[in-house]
Amino acid sequence: MTDFVARRRTMVDTQVRPSDVTKFPIIDAMLTVPRESFVPDAQREAAYVEGLIDYGNGRYMLEPRTLAKMLDALNISNDEMVLDIAPAMGYSTAVAARMAQLVVGVESDETLAAEAQTLLSEADADNAIIHVGPLEQGAVEHGPYDVIMIQGGVEKVPDDVVAQLKDHGRIACLFVEKGLGTVRIGRKTGGRVSWRDAFNASAPVLEHFSAECAFSL
């Protein structure tokens, strides 16, 4: 029988801590949330490897290092509301729920959304819900949010998503440009988001988060 508790500890010790992520709430969450429960049964043995996990239909679980460093840069506190876009089966939502007051995951795939809601309940993430709808529209009825994070690559951030971020709120996005990925942290001030580069990472670009094609004559 696989010892997933030991694998979680190894993941934290070899992928998270060496990436300069040492905040107790993040370490505790990643040691506690059963990552193997949030992947398809056929991929449970691969749940703790370094690399993306492919759910199909354009959904991926980000590498442990990438999620941990995103959370580290966002520095979520227990009185904040978080919008988590494209969480697939809900792992990132479950992890963030151990730090935030409330987490709203947005998933457009109804099958994944239903699985995520069940898994969140099983993980005692009572302060997390899954909203079913287009990723690019966020979940305006539950916002605005102190923190937004997107679980996949982006070339642009839709205006509807930015509008749901509170003034002085933070957003983490993995921008992909010419095949290279950089996670940037944005802070909203006066209705505008200022970005800074945080670290390099990679993930395929989510549908509806790609740059619009420009044509010239």
Rank of each mutant, 00 (worst) to 15 (best):
residue 81 M to S: 12
residue 84 D to Q: 11
residue 70 M to C: 12
residue 67 L to Y: 08
residue 87 P to G: 01
residue 96 A to M: 04
residue 105 G to T: 01
residue 106 V to H: 08
residue 96 A to W: 02
residue 83 L to G: 07
residue 69 K to N: 08
residue 81 M to E: 09
residue 95 V to K: 06
residue 81 M to P: 06
residue 92 S to H: 14
residue 96 A to V: 06
residue 69 K to V: 15
residue 90 G to K: 12
residue 72 D to Q: 13
residue 73 A to C: 12
residue 90 G to V: 12
residue 83 L to Y: 10
residue 93 T to S: 14
residue 72 D to C: 10
residue 92 S to Q: 11
residue 103 V to C: 03
residue 97 A to Y: 07
residue 100 A to E: 03
residue 99 M to S: 07
residue 90 G to S: 07
residue 89 M to K: 11
residue 102 L to I: 14
residue 104 V to P: 01
residue 68 A to I: 05
residue 79 D to I: 03
residue 67 L to H: 05
residue 101 Q to T: 09
residue 88 A to N: 12
residue 100 A to V: 08
residue 101 Q to C: 00
residue 86 A to W: 05
residue 78 N to F: 03
residue 80 E to L: 02
residue 97 A to P: 07
residue 73 A to F: 08
residue 68 A to E: 06
residue 84 D to H: 07
residue 79 D to H: 04
residue 71 L to Q: 14
residue 75 N to W: 00
residue 90 G to H: 04
residue 98 R to V: 05
residue 77 S to C: 13
residue 102 L to N: 13
residue 76 I to P: 01
residue 77 S to E: 02
residue 91 Y to H: 13
residue 72 D to Y: 14
residue 72 D to N: 12
residue 67 L to R: 03
residue 75 N to R: 10
residue 82 V to P: 02
residue 104 V to K: 03
residue 95 V to F: 01
residue 82 V to H: 00
residue 80 E to S: 02
residue 89 M to P: 15
residue 82 V to S: 02
residue 78 N to Y: 02
residue 86 A to N: 06
